[in-house]
Amino acid sequence: MADIDSSALDALSARLDEVEGYLHVDELRGTVAQLEQESTAPGFWDDANAARETMARLSAAKSDVAGIDAARAKLEDARAALELGEETSDDDLLAEAASIASSLEHDLTELELSSWFTDDLDHGDAIVTVTPGQGGLEAQDWCDMLFHMYLRYCDRRGWTVDVNDAPQAEVIGIDHATFTVHGHNAYGMLRAEQGVHRLVRISPTDEKKRRQTTFAGVEVLPILPDDIEVDIDPKDLRIDVYHATGHGGQGVNTTDSAVRITHIPTGTVVTCQNERSQLQNKAFAMKILRSRLYEMELEKRAAELDELRGPKHEIGFGNQIRSYVLYPYQLVKDLRTGMETGNVDSVLQDGDLDKFIIAYHRWVVAGRPEQ
């Protein structure tokens, strides 16, 4: 936002009013006061799990209120700098007004996203799995590229990542990747990535340097809070242990620490090998299994299918949500929203995904208009 005028600030003010309405800020302030009172009550920490959930709700509510208050302050600072700059013809003040307005625009986008996330699961952590699709060895390499793209994106957002399983493939790339993302709105943001991703490039493994089209699938699951019950009969589980490979800490391969759990009635298989301890790997594999079985139950009910993960498709031609073209031209385009960029490196190398994720959520809020 290089130039700024009063009409631009009026538009930002209108956006801020809308966000305040979405977030019900007055109610949020009351919620903060109520939860703060609860957190100081005697015996509050007697039930540690309930206390942690209350503190998480308090932190989220305080964050939204603080965001609104900070945005209001920036708007007033921008107006003051603009008015004084116009009165005195001071270019430095006008530049300051433009800079504050640009910062405010970014803050409003983040607040709008938070206001669109109406499910409690949206504000929590996410389990992401990237799986090779059509394309043979190339698909395994593409899976690895997407995996590292998401690691960079999470780093840009200040989220922390635990790599649960990312075994190296025999020739190139990885067999799959499963990782957990910890951060505010992680699941809400990343569910925009659920679906099939298509890569077009000159094959690095083809001696004739022919163009190759490759696919990978991305699954995004929420981390379920403890109060959501998923009934799993231990008799329905087959648990295998094996040597860990690929990503992991020093010494991770010295014991049979990796765990594979198969839920026999559904055929669901989950693996985890990031921790040295077999018990830790088993515990996290069970957490992933709970989330997947919860998803399957929602699918049976059908009502919430689109909200959590969208319809299932074969990981191949005709089902992609986004295309990444490296040859004969360079373009990343989301086929749902129409958002695109020619700066492929900024996406794949630097993890610059916000434009695509924000566009997706705007598209959803607008009712998913036909493209």
Rank of each mutant, 00 (worst) to 15 (best):
E36C: 09
E307F: 09
C154E: 00
S7K: 14
E170V: 08
L137W: 07
K287A: 02
V325G: 04
V65H: 07
L35W: 11
V161R: 09
L331H: 08
L9Q: 03
D5R: 11
K208W: 03
V325H: 12
E27A: 14
V364E: 07
I202L: 12
S13G: 14
H184E: 05
V347A: 05
Y327I: 03
D165E: 12
N319T: 07
K312M: 11
D122V: 04
L151A: 05
Q371K: 14
E18F: 13
R15E: 13
I223V: 13
P234I: 03
L335A: 12
S203F: 01
Q134D: 14
D206N: 06
P328I: 08
N274P: 02
Y329A: 13
R260M: 08
A302F: 15
G351V: 10
E53Q: 14
L35F: 12
W116D: 06
P328G: 03
H313V: 10
L35S: 14
D334A: 10
E304Y: 09
L279F: 05
Q278R: 10
D227N: 08
D119Q: 11
Y324I: 12
S115R: 04
T214Q: 06
T213D: 01
V181P: 01
G183F: 01
S102G: 04
T31H: 12
K74I: 01
S257M: 01
S203G: 03
S203E: 01
G43C: 15
A302V: 13
D3R: 10
G367R: 04
S103H: 07
R15V: 04
R292N: 06
D155F: 14
L75D: 03
L190W: 01
Y327H: 12
D354T: 06
P42A: 15
G85S: 04
F117N: 08
T271G: 02
T88H: 07
A73L: 13
D175N: 10
R29V: 11
L28Y: 12
A41C: 15
Q37M: 11
A51Q: 07
M286P: 06
G183Y: 03
W159C: 02
A139P: 08
L113F: 07
I172R: 15
L308P: 00
I232D: 03
E36P: 07
D91S: 15
E297F: 09
P234A: 00
T262E: 13
Y242N: 01
L237K: 01
R156F: 04
E18Y: 14
W142C: 11
G133Y: 09
A98R: 03
G85A: 06
T129G: 00
D231Q: 06
L111E: 01
L137V: 14
V230R: 01
A139F: 14
R157V: 00
D92S: 10
A2N: 09
L331R: 06
N185Y: 01
E38Y: 09
